[in-house]
Design a protein around this nucleic acid. Structure first.
Length: 274
DNA sequence: AGTGCGACCTGATCGC
DNA sequence: TGCGATCAGGTCGCAC
């Protein structure tokens, strides 16, 4: 489910509603979703005030006023929903945080792959997965020159590289396919073989698709919704992902689908030459 | 260093 | 209508 634009949309939609609220009650229906144990998780959160909401890659980081932070990863089907307690419980609701404003934040996750981790803030810098993330694609430290240079010594397929969170943070299968399509680069191209013009095209494409994804409040294929339960809109703008056999926007020929880097990949065999 | 697989889960869809 | 196979936005660990 959620890639950077979806997580950022969740962050924004929650931020305006839960900032400065106090967590009054914690209910855990499925203990494996939380870290450390249920007991410690609940006790660590109760009476804490929500100070700040950050995002890094696909991680949502909820800073509390004490020395702790709640790190959330939605994986494939996780949802964080801010709602009134009267709203009927979704079938796969695993954790409920009740706030002092009378509302709740519910963690719902059909496939149960996600994780809510309560950790001391000083451990944010060492948490596996989070601490090893590459640059944010929209930040100043993701530079054209740095990107070009980094591609030069990578012998892996460009699709695998863009999916590698330690290389660049936040891209997933959808936005990688979109970026490669826009840059007219085949997903199986070996990264080091991209010429400078291609590298720049890809750099620009990555930033553009991520920015457009955020502007459109993310992509809803089936499960994704923001912090208020609203669907995204970027699914109407996709040009490659999920468009197998449909006409290429550039040349009109049917797009092809193939497994690359272990993921289903859709591309134009004519415009994105191998 | 890079690749390919299974594992973790539920549910939608498709072919028979 | 039913039933099994396949696939899904992510990541991790392991074998080669």
């Amino acid at each position: 489910m959620p890639e950077l634009p979806e997580v950022e949309t969740v962050r924004r939609s929650l931020e305006e509603r839960i900032l400065d609220k106090v967590i009054a009650r914690v209910q855990i229906m499925m203990t494996k979703m939380v870290r450390p144990g249920a007991e410690e998780f609940a006790h660590g959160l109760v009476c804490e005030t929500i100070e700040k909401l950050d995002r890094r890659g696909k991680y949502l980081i909820i800073h509390l006023t004490g020395d702790k932070a709640l790190v959330v990863h939605l994986r494939m089907t996780g949802r964080l929903i801010y709602c009134h307690p009267d709203r009927p419980l979704d079938k796969h609701t695993h954790v409920i945080l009740t706030l002092d404003d009378g509302h709740q934040i519910r963690y719902v996750d059909i496939r149960q792959f996600g994780k809510l981790q309560l950790i001391p803030k000083e451990e944010l810098g060492v948490l596996s997965g989070l601490s090893t993330l590459g640059p944010e694609p929209l930040s100043d430290d993701f530079t054209k020159e740095g990107f070009k240079k980094a591609l030069r010594n990578k012998r892996t397929k460009i699709k695998a590289l863009l999916l590698d969170q330690t290389f660049i943070a936040g891209l997933g299968n959808i936005y990688v396919d979109e970026a490669l399509f826009r840059a007219k680069i085949h997903p199986e191209r070996v990264a080091s073989t991209l010429n400078p013009r291609e590298a720049v095209r890809l750099y620009t494409a990555v930033r553009d698709v991520i920015a457009e994804g955020i502007e459109n409040r993310g992509t809803t294929l089936r499960d994704y919704v923001d912090g208020t339960g609203q669907m995204g809109g970027y699914q109407h703008h996709l040009r490659a992902y999920g468009r197998e056999n449909m006409p290429c926007y550039y040349c009109g020929r049917p797009l092809e689908r193939k497994v690359v880097a272990g993921r289903s990949s859709t591309f134009c065999p004519k415009c994105q030459k191998a």
